[in-house]
Design a protein around this nucleic acid. Structure first.
Length: 444
DNA sequence: TCTGGGGTCCTAGGACCC
DNA sequence: TCTGGGGTCCTAGGACCC
């Protein structure tokens, strides 16, 4: 059996641990630039706030309904996530951390009472971190996800499902008729892997509920959609097609992008922003011990500003030799921006992508082109650069981001007029668990 | 004024090769 | 009139996830 455990309204719950005034209130967490709602408390869902809804569309609810908005505090959420995952890991032999707030647990070969395990795990997480969670158990990952969904929904909307399924839902202890009733009462779009587009097509073909899907013809589904949906169907019927992966491979691409607080119209602004994004991406690249074989940049106008002329650039620059050197990556990106920038547009968003990633040490030899002396010199320089990068990362880790930066990106900080892309976070909470100077102070 | 930011996998179609 | 065919690699785009 597999378990799926996830944090309820995770970001909001993290904020509530340290700010009891938020408990019981409609609360949303906002994306960078306080642009859109990326997490909602149950109360916020009830007053109609949608996922990813722009903040300006719901801001009026502050006055009319007591809605509270906070800026995203990813440093806090990341640390709370790690604490939660540590507790979960104690309850099963194998854990796959699937996202910041979810993990799959593999109970294969374990014959514990899973209901009891689920309840104990929830209680321990609540006790040790203050975070509320939901737990689902099923014979496959897709079923565990579905059980989790039903457990959470039973908790949030009493009456839709039997009350005893709330919070911890174990499909393994339900009779076939009970399961059929649950599946008949659940819309097909709630299945993991069935998104908006596929839901529309399925419904057009008469498949509305999870039960309808389970009774569909698998070969026909594969022909009409893809092998992915066929796998989902098999998983719903109890045939496991996806293993719990407790040693995930390194990332295949690293992307950093941002919408700007104010549109950028000059090439220097785009270069500064892209340089910053490439630097961030390169930090993560070195963090996972990889080299990038290509660096991509993109920048685009806003499709929402209908009166603006639209223009997008998206280019990938292959590198002669794979590298994790920020300076090399940044200068390649800057050259690409310079080559493709066009005047007269209001650019609203930009980003950088590192692709063609491979582990350090597997770079292969373009070096043959050089004579052996040049080769040795190049290798020497590169080793020195790598040490420099390592030192830079260590200093930034110890003393906080941007304690040490490359000259080309640091130049921007003294020129505020082109740092308009810097994220505005007017409502961010303190980073209670990761910064000494932001720790919660309790007075007796 | 203001519209998220990360990722993954699959497929179709073109390039290229023999 | 009539212009091979099959395999592989790569890329772009579309679907999904949180």
């Amino acid at each position: 059996m597999y378990g799926l455990i996830d944090g309820n309204n995770f970001y909001v719950s993290c904020e509530r641990v340290f700010a009891p005034r938020l408990v019981g209130k409609p609360v949303v967490v906002l994306s960078s630039n306080d642009g859109a709602c990326i997490a909602r408390s149950n109360e916020a869902k009830e007053i109609g706030v949608k996922m990813a809804q722009p903040w300006f569309q719901v801001k009026h609810l502050e006055r009319s309904a007591g809605l509270i908005a906070v800026s995203a505090n990813h440093e806090l959420y990341g640390d709370m996530s790690a604490r939660m995952m540590d507790v979960e890991a104690r309850y099963a032999p194998r854990q796959e951390v699937y996202s910041v707030d979810e993990s799959f647990l593999d109970f294969t070969g374990v014959c514990d009472d899973l209901m009891a395990t689920g309840k104990a795990m929830r209680a321990a997480i609540l006790q040790e971190t203050g975070l509320p969670t939901s737990v689902g158990f099923g014979a496959t990952k897709t079923l565990a996800k579905l059980a989790n969904h039903i457990g959470k929904t039973a908790d949030r909307k009493p009456g839709l499902y039997p009350a005893h399924l709330a919070q911890v839902c174990d499909f393994g202890r339900l009779q076939p008729q009970e399961l059929d009733a649950l599946f008949a009462a659940t819309e097909v779009g709630n299945v993991w892997g069935v998104g908006k587009k596929i839901t529309e097509k399925l419904k057009a073909g008469g498949i509305h509920t999870v039960l309808d899907l389970m009774r569909a013809d698998s070969a026909q589904l594969r022909a009409q959609f893809s092998v992915t949906l066929e796998k989902t169907l098999l998983e719903l019927r109890g045939t496991s097609c996806m293993e719990v992966d407790d040693a995930p491979a390194p990332r295949q691409q690293i992307l950093v992008s941002r919408s700007f607080g104010t549109a950028i119209t000059n090439v220097e602004g785009i270069i500064e922003a892209c340089s910053e994004f490439v630097s961030r991406a390169a930090e993560r690249l070195r963090g996972q011990g990889s080299l990038a074989g290509a660096v991509g940049i993109f920048f685009t106008t806003s499709p929402f500003r209908q009166n603006d002329r639209q223009h997008s650039v998206n280019v990938t620059v292959p590198l002669v030799r794979p590298t994790a050197d920020s300076a090399v990556l940044v200068s390649a990106a800057a050259a690409a921006v310079r080559a493709h920038f066009r005047h007269g547009f209001n650019y609203a968003k930009a980003g950088a992508v590192l692709t063609d990633l491979r582990p350090v040490g597997q770079e292969q030899g373009e070096l043959d082109l050089f004579s052996s002396i040049e080769q040795e010199a190049a290798a020497h320089t590169e080793a020195a650069r790598a040490k420099l990068m390592t030192a830079m990362d260590a200093l930034n880790h110890r003393f906080g981001r941007d304690s040490v930066r490359l000259g080309s990106t640091a130049a921007a900080s003294s020129r505020d007029e082109i740092r308009v892309w810097a994220t505005k976070q007017e409502r961010r909470s303190p980073r209670y668990t990761t910064r000494w100077d932001e720790m919660l102070v309790v007075r007796a």
